[in-house]
Amino acid sequence: MGGKSDKPLIVKGKRLDGRTAEELRPFKIKAGIIKQADGSCELEFGETKVIAGVYGPKKVLPKHLEENTRAFLKVTYSMIPFSTSERNRPGPSRRSKEISKVIKDALAPAINLEKYPQTCIDIHIEITNANAGTRTSAINAATVALIDAGIEMRDVVASIAAGKVEDQVILDLFQDEDNFGQADLPIAMMPRTGEITLVQMDGDMTAAEIKKAIDMCEKACLKIAKVQRKAIIDEYKNNEVKNNE
């Protein structure tokens, strides 16, 4: 946010990468890519690339974090050093700690945590290539990894950001639009009920623009959820073939 782009970001209704206002970047999701993990997922959203791994339900360490009535959910979002234009110092930053927290809050409503008391579910998310929308991609990937781990879920969580660029509300910002835009509004929701599990926003928007942005995100989340489900079904079929051989 903030800076000014030296070229217009939207020309005749088309964005710099040729998309219309409401068009998503091409994306693909693959489940089951880490053998050691209980569940895993690799996701590409345009140039943003994410890997998520789930370990658990497992023993809680340190023990004092254990909860008697539900599982302890731990989310670690991190950007690997070569995922950004300037090298990203390894280790948790204030930004990544905040994002880990909001991702945990976004996923928790969908997980049946009460089913796994006195255990820990560990979700690790690594951003391997960052081009805006890393937290939303992280949520999309983590959801698939959780289902892949066989953890009981109430619904999938699908996530996407809308934003405001040159006074227009647009969907799924990429790097330049994120850097030079007027607002960014990431959303996560459970498509079955339409309940929102993540909201963040920065920039400047009117209430009407926010309404428009949320409507766009709702539609996009339905599309994303379909691909998430397909990734799980594909992985399941894949395993079935292997087991039969």
């Binding site: 909001v102 409503p109 509004l185 009920t193 339409g194 309940e195 599990t197 909201v199 400047d204």
Partner: peptide, 27 residues
């Protein structure tokens, strides 16, 4: 902001909100 625009939002907690609740909260 002074004009009544929205400059920041953050959802917290392990629950959910609906989009109509959100629009009511903004108002």
């Amino acid at each position: 902001t002074k004009k009544g625009n929205i400059c920041a939002m953050q959802k917290g907690g392990e629950g959910t909100i609906t989009s109509s609740e959100m629009m009511d909260m903004i108002k």
